[in-house]
């Protein structure tokens, strides 16, 4: 990475910082806002969000998970300088992790809820 060759635009170029320090503080403010929103939602737990489900997961949890991925994106892209790396270094790191993790998470969550059904519907007496 060339030293003074930072990509200083975030939000697809909507916000452009003057220098790298400014970008760092800008991203910090963004991450702080996201964290504050998460904590506020976690404490208030609005009923609209906890009682409605999308694909059998609460809307609130979808929001939490989405915000987490957004945070992870900015940490990787701006703090870890992924934005300034070559396209294929980015792909080698991110795609490998993303595909393997999605597969792993899908398998384990699917099997977990299967076992839950066995406990619930099956002949095992569990509640005593």
């Amino acid at each position: 990475m060339a030293h003074d060759n930072h990509n200083l635009a975030i939000f697809r170029g909507k916000i452009k910082f003057k220098n790298n320090q400014q970008k760092i503080w800008g991203v910090f403010i963004l991450l702080s806002i996201i964290t504050i929103v998460e904590v506020a939602l976690g404490i208030i737990k609005p009923e609209v969000l906890t009682h409605n489900h999308l694909f059998s997961l609460k809307i609130l949890n979808w929001i939490f998970l989405t915000l987490t991925v957004v945070k992870a994106y900015y940490i990787t892209w701006d703090f870890m300088h992924m934005r300034d790396e070559v396209k294929f270094l980015r792909r080698v790191v991110v795609w490998t992790a993303v595909f393997l993790i999605l597969y792993l998470v899908y398998m384990l969550l699917e099997e977990g809820s299967y076992i839950f059904d066995v406990y619930k519907e099956g002949f095992i007496k569990f509640n005593f």
Partner: peptide
């Protein structure tokens, strides 16, 4: 970077198994 990828997979393994147990006793 490659170490980080492998370590990320280790943590995903732990977190996914946490999810497994959580869904098992949801």
């Amino acid at each position: 970077w490659f170490f980080i990828v492998s370590d990320a997979l280790t943590f995903s393994g732990f977190i996914a198994s946490y999810g497994f147990s959580r869904f098992k006793f949801i």
